[in-house]
Design a protein around this nucleic acid. Sequence first.
DNA 1: GGTTGTGAACAAATTCACAGCG
DNA 2: CGCTGTGAATTTGTTCACAACC
Lengths: 250, 250
Amino acid sequence: MPDSARRRIPEATVARLPVYLRILLELAGAKATTISSEQLAELAGVNAAKVRKDLSYLGSYGTRGVGYDVEYLMFQMSRELGLNQDWPVVIVGIGNLGAALANYGGFSERGFPVAALVDADKSKVGTRVGALTIRHIDELPQVAAELGAAIGIIATPAVVAQEVADRLVDAGITSVLNFAPAIVTVPPSASLRKVDLAVELQILSFYQQRRPPPAAESGVQQRRRARNAERAGAKGGGSPGDLATGVGTS
Amino acid sequence: MPDSARRRIPEATVARLPVYLRILLELAGAKATTISSEQLAELAGVNAAKVRKDLSYLGSYGTRGVGYDVEYLMFQMSRELGLNQDWPVVIVGIGNLGAALANYGGFSERGFPVAALVDADKSKVGTRVGALTIRHIDELPQVAAELGAAIGIIATPAVVAQEVADRLVDAGITSVLNFAPAIVTVPPSASLRKVDLAVELQILSFYQQRRPPPAAESGVQQRRRARNAERAGAKGGGSPGDLATGVGTS
DNA sequence: GGTTGTGAACAAATTCACAGCG
DNA sequence: CGCTGTGAATTTGTTCACAACC
């Protein structure tokens, strides 16, 4: 199959690719060279058929009887996800959450350097958080342009979330991650995702009282408890016996 | 339809109920007495048919030709979600994120008081964060028992996330919200949800380069740009023009 | 033998469209 | 007339199961 001629990748698959990628990264660090769909499924907490279907949307990058080459799969997946380049991020609203996100190393590590902090509160402007100085939200267009930022994070109170989203879009930002507990919309030309912490707890509350959920969201296979599935060896330089501590179960 | 005889509520619906509930809360604060599925859909950023289907799983609480009674719907929904009572929460891992979550008022406000903070780092134990003193993770069973905590939040580094989950479950906690970028599993008797911040950004990165996503996750209707969809009419006592923009909130 | 890639079966979720009721 | 509640149609996502291939 040539490099082109690819189907449109389903949304559900797109949401899982980053999880696979993180696992591949760990595998590569553990010197694994290949991995089977069965093993990857185990580590990702999903079904093996799903892994194969998901990966097939990227192309036919596996080898029958062998599995997938870890490095090559990582490369293709990163490319598909657009993670060859860094995507600088602007955080709007430097309260508790905004400041924590600014200090959170996990973003830069994974290719999303926090490049600017912005707030509407003039008493905060000029203050430093980590290595960055907070700037005023009115400067958003300049700030975004300077950095070539494409992603904005909203960590403001709910009441101003929509206004902030509008200003982000006006400043040329096309991807928005909203942490404010409010419904926010962006034009079709931009993308939006949201994380509502209290909503997550409320969902848990529902299942707290009744039976547990059907299958625990996007992860967790009940049979075969993954448990110490950490360090996944696979055949490669690494110690060859320790993959998943229970891969070929059941 | 009597009070019993209810279908099993689909997972996708459960995930949206808290969003509706938040909107109803704002509406009630703005003195709205009734709301139609059309208006609620607008405010929630979803399709009206979906709202009606979702609400129908709770029972037949609407009035044809009129809409839903805001207070009554709130009551039924809270009951269904198990939000009549508070659910004390234990946060494990008081780093940047854990501390921010501890200080985040949004949890207590919505019925999830942060009741205890726990960390493995002895130099942190005894330290205060807000009104709480950090305790050692070895005390988890006692802490959980003291508070009757049912929900645990994992805000630790990825490597210890599974171990922490195990200890939470052993301590009698049956709902876990995982912020660590690692796959964690819990026994079928417990529930699990996860929030992976970097994964969210990576998903956005995918849509950044290509066309925008099919319909922007669980919100946003492209047609009828919600925008100033604020003020959801609704016949009620309150000044009928001021609903959103700063609903009852503080 | 082992493992992928995928068509086909199945299941879940969404949307349509309209009867039924206030 | 307006709006709910819901069967039916459609779309999306998951899982099975097996031929193809290394």
